[in-house]
Design a protein around this nucleic acid. Structure first.
Lengths: 242, 242
DNA sequence: CTTAGTTACGTACAACGTACGTAGTGAGAT
DNA sequence: ATCTCACTACGTACGTTGTACGTAACTAAG
């Protein structure tokens, strides 16, 4: 009976290779890669122990030798994606530019793996690669004269903006994966309902907002504005509050 | 064969009471209330069709007369909680104060129903009560001279801050509900791992950040600072960027 | 009164996470 | 060289989930 302890454990603290016995057929990286492949192809709900095992080409229960609980599989996945960044370059010294670039890359990553938004809120945020990412974020702020507490708050806010906006953007499309109809159909029906509701006159300001002719929404621009505002708030002095 | 159409539908567009046949034993509000009670008591994972039906005192499959799919049950729950706000009062004219108060109430609501954070990202955001809330948010900004597009962005950022911070705050505790050990045990093991990792010297800035003696973190203060920053960024003019 | 649509709900099924047991493997101890 | 035993591999099985489907009872519309 191996590897399913009844006490709390962190997958990262568990040695990948045990001393005795035959050598494992797969590495942790193999398993994370397989799970990520399954999620990219079929969404996060397709990531079942059976599917991942099939992708690896082994029996379902063999997976449990590597991953005691399904949540640990999620942690492996999140960490692997967090490791996809190229972070070797040294910060340029312009913290605003560096952090903006980093946020853009984080956003691109989450759009490349649309299931990550949901996963990140289901998983403990301190895997090895997540810590590497965090360390790099702080390194970008070396030139900024602030206590680390505030730097952490800045980084948290930037990450918050990224996940919030990407999640909003992808939620409809991702949720539609589990539905028997298409995302477009779903969207059309929702919009029709909202249109009827707004036309009722009960929501005058919402009506005005939707009537406002501003052309199609540029999601990139919206994201950039939100990010810039957060960065601004750490640059400018706040006006006194009565 | 009633009520499980193969085409897209919105629960809110479906009439609560059909013209023919015996009158339903429950109202939509009854069902939402029961589901919320189950979630408050046992977390979101306790909300199963069987449990909610048991809470109502009816057969499992009877629920499907009211709620075609489980996701619709989630929508009912989210809408009910969104309806728990008291919003009758007119905005005071001080949009900053009004929006701050509103954000505080939203935060309190999400802490009172810790499962809401996860639910809101799984559900389409335009239920009747959500629209009421949005309309009220816009009403708070009546005095602010901005196009509706920007007002919507402001409201979205405020809501984003609320959900982000509450989710971070609650995620450990909520996740621990499904684990065979306690949140405290889990936390202790995680902290121990991080401590070992940080002591390795690979994350000098993280180490410095954790070493920085700032006393226990005041989550309320952190939230207030983040919120204030977002509001600031719509008040102050942004300095020119080179 | 008829009839057709609605409500109520028991049964059944596929898919899930995973507990458990068994068989085989191979590195360290003797 | 042989023994030993932790470890790997994985089939079987159980409890739980969402929900498709069928049946029986009920009631408003024609």
């Amino acid at each position: 009976m191996a590897g399913r302890p009844a006490e709390p454990h962190v997958i990262w603290a568990r040695p990948e290779r045990a001393g005795r016995g035959p050598k494992p057929a797969f590495s942790r990286a193999d398993i994370a890669a397989a799970a990520v492949r399954v999620a990219d192809a079929g969404g996060i709900d397709a990531v079942t122990m059976r599917q991942v095992a099939a992708e690896l080409g082994c029996g379902t229960m063999s997976l449990y030798n590597y991953v005691p609980r399904k949540e640990d599989l999620y942690e492996l996945m999140a960490d692997r994606v967090a490791g996809e960044y190229d972070l070797p370059e040294k910060p340029s010294g312009d913290w605003r530019a560096d952090l903006t670039a980093l946020a853009h890359r984080a956003r691109a990553m989450m759009r490349a793996h649309p299931w990550m938004a949901r996963l990140m809120s289901a998983v403990y945020g301190f895997s090895p690669n997540a810590m590497r990412y965090l360390e790099h974020s702080l390194a970008c702020l070396d030139a900024l004269d602030l206590p680390y507490g505030e730097k952490m708050e800045l980084v948290a806010m930037v990450n918050g903006v990224v996940t919030t906006y990407v999640a909003n953007e992808l939620q409809t499309a991702e949720r539609a994966r589990s539905l028997p109809w298409s995302a477009e159909q779903e969207h059309a029906v929702r919009i029709a309902y909202m249109g009827r509701e707004i036309a009722s006159g009960r929501y005058p300001r919402l009506a005005a907002a939707f009537a406002e002719d501003s052309g199609p929404i540029d999601l990139d621009a919206v994201f950039d504005r939100a990010l810039a505002r957060v960065l601004d708030s750490f640059t400018t002095r706040r006006p006194e509050n009565p």
